[in-house]
């Protein structure tokens, strides 16, 4: 297969098609709109432009229950609108892929510039406890690969899987090899119209709502949690680069910003989570080798807090805000922090 030049968002659509996408519903938003623009031209994919992101996520929930692999794509404002029904999809165990191409928030923020401000929203945006699988690639070829992984993980976990991107990598053009040789996971549950099942957002057991059964609720949440952990274990993706020099510092970054981290590989050990959530357990072992943990991210420390929580130790973080990734600024901040 030959290398071809593709845009990040375009790679997502190509991979989605390979993964078996059959239904897409979305609402226009920069920097995600290229995804729907690309998909409308694909023959075997039903594409709906809905009235908003709430309708979009709910339409794909319906389509997925009806048996089709379904996806939506949005950015922060739309992702915020989807939150209630993301919880619904977890409770009803509906496989979905939700692409969030992040831009600078809060609110309308800086619509055309990249950010990483939706990291915590991925895991706590909806009310109640749920345990989503979240991938965040950092290149066009990775967007391609992890779109397929997201579809597979969704089918295996019967849950909505989030593919994070950002305005930078989604709009990047890179040459990739659009490989079609992936093991594709297919739907195991029969589609709607085949029985008398009841899918509900209420606490339930075997199709029957149980609104005040405490033990049943606890069992349900434990089962959902374990299911997510189990599936996640099969998608243990991260990148770890030891430093050629002796260093006491591990520099953690992900997504767009991690691309610039490679520049510092001779001064720091580098760690990049690709599966952002559930947090890859290996970080505990890797981090134990370093005295300092430094995290840079395009928010005010969202992932840093999660890492602190899992490592039970303090980490330093460098916020890179306003959608601007500038080598000199980062250099200055990294070494300033140090000395």
């Amino acid at each position: 297969m030959t290398k071809q030049l593709f845009q990040g968002n375009q790679a997502i659509t190509m991979a989605a098609e390979v993964a078996g996408l059959k239904f897409f519903a979305g609402y226009p938003i920069t920097p995600a709109s290229e995804i729907i623009h690309e998909l409308v031209n694909k023959k075997h994919i039903k594409v709906l432009q809905m009235e908003d992101e709430i309708a979009s996520i709910n339409a794909i929930i319906g389509a997925s229950l009806a048996g089709l692999k379904a996806m939506t794509a949005t950015s922060g404002p739309g992702f915020s609108l989807m939150q209630e029904s993301i919880g619904l999809a977890h409770m009803m165990e509906v496989p979905l892929v939700i692409v969030n191409v992040q831009r600078v928030g809060p609110s309308t923020g800086m619509p055309t510039l990249p950010a990483q401000g939706d990291v915590i929203q991925c895991i706590h945006g909806s009310h109640g406890d749920y345990f989503p699988i979240v991938f965040y690639p950092n290149s066009v070829s990775e967007l391609y690969k992890y779109t397929i992984m997201a579809f597979n993980a969704a089918e295996e976990s019967l849950s909505p899987v989030i593919l994070l991107s950002d305005g930078f990598i989604s709009h990047l053009y890179e040459t990739i090899i659009p490989d079609r040789n992936f093991d594709i996971k297919n739907r195991t549950r029969p589609p709607l119209g085949a029985g008398n099942r009841h899918f509900t957002g209420l606490s339930h057991e075997d199709s029957v709502p149980k609104t005040s059964d405490v033990d049943n609720y606890r069992r349900l949440i434990t089962r959902l949690h374990e299911k997510q952990q189990l599936t996640a274990q099969r998608y243990n993706y991260y990148e770890y680069l030891e430093c050629s020099k002796d260093t006491d510092t591990l520099l953690i970054s992900y997504g767009a910003l991690s691309r610039i981290a490679y520049y510092f590989k001779n001064d720091f050990a580098l760690y990049r989570p690709i599966r952002l959530f559930p947090i890859v357990e290996e970080i505990k072992i890797i981090a134990s080798r370093y005295k300092r943990i430094l995290i840079m991210e395009m928010n005010t420390g969202q992932y840093a807090h999660e890492i602190e929580r899992i490592l039970h130790r303090e980490v330093e973080f460098i916020p890179i805000l306003g959608g601007c990734i500038d080598l000199n600024e980062i250099k200055q901040k990294l070494y300033e922090q140090r000395y």
Binding site: I54, A59, L65, L88, M92, T200
Partner: peptide
């Protein structure tokens, strides 16, 4: 029958997704 109990106000888009899917 197979049935879906959605979020508040969202039955119609879920139903539309089902119908357009099958």
């Amino acid at each position: 029958l197979d049935s879906v109990h959605t979020a508040h106000g969202r039955a119609i888009p879920v139903a539309e997704g089902i119908k357009y899917a099958n």
